[in-house]
Write a protein that binds this DNA or RNA. Structure first.
Length: 568
DNA sequence: GCCGTTTTCGGCCCGACTGTTTTCAGTCG
């Protein structure tokens, strides 16, 4: 996997930070380790290259001590500090920090006074009431932790699409490098681009199944081999500290299409498809389409669909949400393609809490063949995120004007302006009016009149886009208390745009609400909310979710060559 | 542990929110 060592080092530094925090150590050292971890995660070069060229200390958050730890890791594969910090902490304890509402202080106390070492201990202490006995623990707090445990467990069993794609793409690339392999493709909910997936399934055809499986199970990322035969192999790989299972199935060429169709699902889609086939005297299985005993199709998915009189249905639509009916009526949408995207309308620079300079962002946008990119840093109320004062924003605008001279890419002057608790915006109208793009967002008061506040923002003529309209964080946080139907209606009325935030934790609006917005005639802007230039690559997750929401090129504003907003 | 237009020591993002308390600790972003 590319940048594997960057990732592993980031994980180790982040774990060291957790360990120090849990022990009540210096909180600034905690911050320092976390910052180094973030830098490594976002680093596009291999850390080995940086080390070889003696540039480690040029990295943000990497000083003498951390640089020497990186070198130690590259040389020996270990970091003594990491081993030392973990020595005194039971395995699995730090994982519990991922439970919402359970932080280092509470966990340390639970460990010290109740000997809670893992999830099971914690659940027991919740159930038998011993957790409630701790100081500063009340009914509500225990209840929140209980809910937190549920979210935590759910998030562990499902893999975020961003991570699943990375694992599968790396493995598919690895498989294709083997001449025995003819074709290799991901299937399952991953291919349907669901926001989280249960497991990773890869299908392949080739000359010698056993050899391919052996090659697969011996890939460099394998942590453990679970199964290895001549048609199926299963391995565990480690990413971000989690073990993920990947299955590979070897199929015969003749039934690759029907198997891909079968293993892509969804189950509901397949059930309906098979029922329709049966009505036509056909039988569809993973081995092909059969009339009696005669196989009439199976080599490609197109063939399979054609036998029942359907056009090819894109995987993202296969949820039995009307796509089969639309297929028969020949009314399937022409879905948005990644190549339709001409710009990113939500990127943070190092003027607020991003890590890249505007120039770096612009050059990255150029490398993506974009026509424009909008710099939308935080506004002044977002102090935790280095929100810009009016003065700093004006300076930024001047800087952008200068950078736009003689440049084909257009850098758009934007802002992610906070919607305050009273529904007003964080900056005066005169200032907002001077910007190219005004993205308004809720960051405080998630339960206070959110619907009214968003609608008030939509009614401000200077606002163009509402960012992450539901506010949910996948597997981590419910959204705002907001009536999205009312928001969609208001956006329709004012001709405003709702965002599909492509940040992997957000994917907000989600597929269902995107479809509602489309049906209401509301346009969508896909923005990555990137906080580092490389995160602009998240656009493809946004495109995937947009396709699940039945969006076409014309539904998405950042597909037009020139940047145009309907300024009312 | 990092970092420097206040610079090699002494800061480091800071306020909202919640639930616990009776003036504040812990968590989150």
């Amino acid at each position: 996997m590319r940048n594997m060592k960057n990732r592993e080092l980031a994980r180790m530094f982040s774990t060291i930070a957790d360990a120090i925090e849990l022990k009540g150590g210096d909180r600034f050292r905690v911050i320092a380790y976390r910052r180094a971890a973030t830098t490594l995660e976002n680093l596009t070069e291999d850390i080995e290259t940086v080390a070889e060229q003696g540039r480690l200390q040029e990295l943000r958050g990497v000083g003498k001590a951390i640089a020497s730890k990186i070198e130690e890791y590259l040389k020996t594969g270990r970091i003594r500090k990491y081993d030392e910090e973990l020595e005194t902490i039971p395995e699995g304890l730090l994982d519990l920090l991922a439970i919402p509402d359970l932080g280092p202080k509470t966990l340390a106390l639970a460990y010290k006074s109740l000997d809670i070492k893992n999830l099971e201990d914690l659940k027991r202490a919740v159930a038998d009431g011993s957790l409630a006995e701790l100081s500063r623990m009340g009914e509500k707090k225990v209840n929140n932790i209980k809910k937190g445990i549920e979210i935590f467990e759910k998030s562990r069993e499902r893999i975020p699409i961003s991570e699943a794609l990375e694992i599968s793409e790396n493995l598919i690339e690895y498989l294709r490098a083997n001449p025995e392999v003819e074709q290799a493709t991901a299937a399952g909910s991953l291919r349907r681009m669901k926001e989280t997936v249960g497991d990773i399934d890869i299908l392949a055809t080739g000359t010698d199944g056993r050899k391919i499986i052996e090659y697969f199970t011996s890939c460099p990322n394998t942590e453990r081999v679970i199964a290895s035969g001549k048609t199926k192999g299963s391995i565990l790989v480690r990413t971000n500290g989690e073990m993920r299972q990947v299955d590979l199935r070897i199929l015969s060429r003749e039934c690759f299409g029907s198997a891909l169709q079968y293993f892509t699902g969804s189950k509901e889609h397949n059930v309906k498809l098979r029922r329709i086939a049966r009505e036509k005297g056909l039988k569809i299985s993973e081995y092909g389409v059969f009339r009696g005993r005669k196989r009439i199709a199976g080599r490609t998915e197109e063939e399979v669909y054609r036998t029942v009189g359907l056009p090819f249905i894109p995987p993202e639509l296969r949820e039995d949400q009307g796509e089969i009916e639309a297929g028969f009526r020949e009314e399937l949408p022409t879905l948005l393609e990644y190549s339709d995207i001409k710009g990113d309308l939500h990127v943070h620079s190092n003027h607020s809490d991003g890590t890249s300079t505007i120039l770096e962002i612009a050059e990255f946008a150029e490398s993506l063949d974009y026509r424009y990119v909008a710099i939308c840093d935080h506004s002044k109320s977002a102090k935790f995120a280095g929100g810009l004062s009016e003065e700093r924003l004006r300076k930024q605008m001047q800087e952008i004007d200068r950078m736009n001279m003689g440049r084909e890419l257009r850098i758009l002057k934007g802002i992610e302006v906070d919607i305050l608790k009273d529904g007003s915006l964080d900056f005066p109208d005169e200032l907002l009016a001077e910007l190219d793009v005004v993205v308004a967002a809720i960051h405080i008061g998630f339960r206070q009149n959110v619907t009214e506040r968003i609608i008030a923002a939509l009614e401000n003529p200077n606002v163009d886009i509402i960012a992450h309209p539901s506010g949910r964080l996948i597997s981590r946080r419910e959204g705002y208390e907001v009536d999205l139907n009312a928001v969609i209606k208001s956006a329709e009325k004012s001709g405003k745009v709702l965002e599909l935030n492509a940040y992997p934790d957000r994917l907000d609006l989600d597929d269902q609400n995107l479809r509602r917005a489309k049906e209401a005639g509301v346009k969508i802007s896909i923005g990555t909310d990137a906080h580092a230039k490389s995160e602009m690559g998240w656009m493809r997750f946004g495109v995937g979710i947009a396709r699940r929401g039945w969006l076409e090129k014309s539904d998405v504003i950042n597909t037009s060559n020139e940047f145009l907003l309907n300024q009312s």
